[in-house]
């Protein structure tokens, strides 16, 4: 079996600001673009209905702004990625070049999906995200570095300590974020649990 293991410790890149609370995964990728049997090619549909009008003309959206072209770190606000569990949403973002998401808070399934793809989701307090957003807004060419071992983002000579789900952080640093092989290494324990679970054993007690 192919071993997929890639430690993710540092991500450096330019920021892109997608402001607003409660941005749901239907916004990130409209359902009609999920009629596919592979994730390839989803990148072009990221935020599609916010980027294009019903005739296909571009609208004002960060993903259409030339100043953010090539950015890899997404700056967002509260409850980003809420709603549908569709992994198509973070897959679309990743395939559009996003390598990390920095926000005030994330919906749980979204954050889990990102981690399983090797994309860190880290949280900053409201004031810190505002300060970071201000720096990027003033100069989108400025680079920032997200450092997982020290849990800080450094940008423009400033340091922003971030919070992150501790197990997501350690899985990314250890390169065990692609969990299949880790889980499968415990197959004997899995099978022994199968023999104990009441509903798989006729509810026999004892």
């Amino acid at each position: 079996m192919t071993e997929i293991k890639k430690a993710i410790k540092q991500i450096t890149g330019r920021g892109m600001i997608v402001p607003g609370n409660d941005i749901d995964t239907d916004q990130i990728i409209p359902a009609r673009y999920m009629k596919v049997v592979t994730f390839d090619g989803l990148g072009e549909y990221a935020f599609y209905d916010l980027r294009y009008d019903e005739q296909g003309n571009p609208k004002k959206h960060p993903f259409n702004e030339p100043r953010f072209a090539g950015a890899s770190i997404l700056l967002v606000n509260r409850n980003f990625g809420c709603g549908s569990s569709r992994e198509h949403a973070p897959q679309a973002l990743m395939r559009a070049g996003i390598a990390a998401v920095v926000g005030e808070s994330f919906a749980e399934i979204f954050a889990g999906n990102c981690t399983a793809m090797g994309v860190p989701t880290v949280t900053l307090e409201g004031a810190a995200i505002q300060a970071l957003t201000k720096i990027v807004d003033a100069d989108p060419t400025v680079e920032m570095t997200l450092d997982l071992p020290s849990s800080t983002i450094s940008c423009d000579g400033r340091e922003f300590p971030f919070a992150m789900h501790p197990s997501y952080r350690s899985a990314l640093i250890a390169g065990s974020w692609d969990s299949t092989s880790v889980l499968l290494s415990n197959v004997e324990k899995i099978e022994s649990l199968v023999k104990r679970l009441p509903y798989l054993n006729g509810f026999a007690h004892g």
Partner: peptide, 22 residues
Amino acid sequence: FGIGTSQIRDVLATQTMALSRP
């Protein structure tokens, strides 16, 4: 639990998944 596609892969391959207790 609602899960994403990478976790579906995990459940298919191992009948388990990695989760933090809420």
